[in-house]
Design a protein around this nucleic acid. Structure first.
Lengths: 156, 156
DNA sequence: TATAAAATGTAGCCTAGGCAACAAAATTGA
DNA sequence: TCAATTTTGTTGCCTAGGCTACATTTTATA
């Protein structure tokens, strides 16, 4: 026994509202861009942290801190080098370029604001720490400013 | 003239503090996991929205709303089908499975809380909309709860 | 009803970021 | 010093999510 099937799936021409899809697409475009820069931002920030904490940044330390293999770290370092954020020589520790330092400082500040904002909202340190790591890359300057404003009023 | 170069780059055994790298790695692990589910969540949410708004979800509508090519949409639909979130037949419109519907509802709720939270914080609709899209995937249940709590006190 | 247009499917290519396995260099310590 | 260990580099493979170009099916319309 065979089912009779309608040929058409779009029976009537649907009313097309003033194009919502464009503005929606813009948001997803932003998210995709954020993902592009995310790795670079995390790496320069981590390198800066390691240099501050332990005097130098090694491939093995990055691998441990990100929880990935050293092969992955190596591949990413090559890319960051091409992009002018990191300098590296074989078997030596890693350094940031001036541009890398600038980016790291900017990211650290943003990370810090997000983290303290989550704390001020009443979250425990662990949760604030975990969420800040993901959220920081998707917070626009305006939103960051709103976070700062909130922090001023709700002193921790 | 040749530069004399130190053989060793790690001069002294650095003091190793109680392993910070493990907890840090945990945060990045969470972020990587979030990225894994991000696309699936965006797609089921969009499919549910389109069905609600226009009666059906077509590949071409998804492509327009995400701002990507229809080939990209197709590839992702195949994956979501394998994962049991979407049902599709050649040249027909898309449907969610029960599990897909459940996930869509959950995501929509979360998206909504994040969006209204940003509004309550004083941001304009456009910025709130853009940032919510990125932030929603990186907000833990605890943080979402804190957002809800804030919303209750600061009724929009 | 033909034919044009739109939607969908498919193939092949690209980059990013994962991995394991192996190779080579550097550091440590007996 | 030199042998063992650690660190770093390299290769090749995988998946996800982009794209263009081309093939096919469906839908609209002359």
């Amino acid at each position: 026994m065979t089912m009779v099937e309608r040929k058409s799936t779009r029976q009537t021409p649907l009313p097309i509202p003033p194009d919502l899809s464009i503005s929606r697409a813009q948001a997803f475009e932003y998210v995709r861009q954020a993902h592009q820069s995310e790795t670079a931002e995390d790496y320069v920030e981590m390198i800066a942290d390691l240099i501050a904490e332990r005097g130098e940044a090694r491939v093995v330390d990055l691998a441990a801190n990100f929880g990935v293999s050293h092969a992955t770290v190596n591949k990413i370092i090559v890319r960051l080098n091409k992009e002018g954020l990191v300098t590296n020589r074989p078997y030596r520790s890693l350094f940031l370029t001036v541009e890398g330092e600038r980016l790291a400082a900017e990211c650290k500040e943003r990370h810090d604001v997000v983290y303290r904002f989550l704390l001020a909202l009443g979250l425990d340190e662990h949760t604030a720490s975990l969420d800040a790591e993901g959220v920081e890359h998707h917070v626009s300057p305006k939103t960051l400013q709103a976070f700062r404003k909130f922090l001023k009023k709700n002193a921790p």
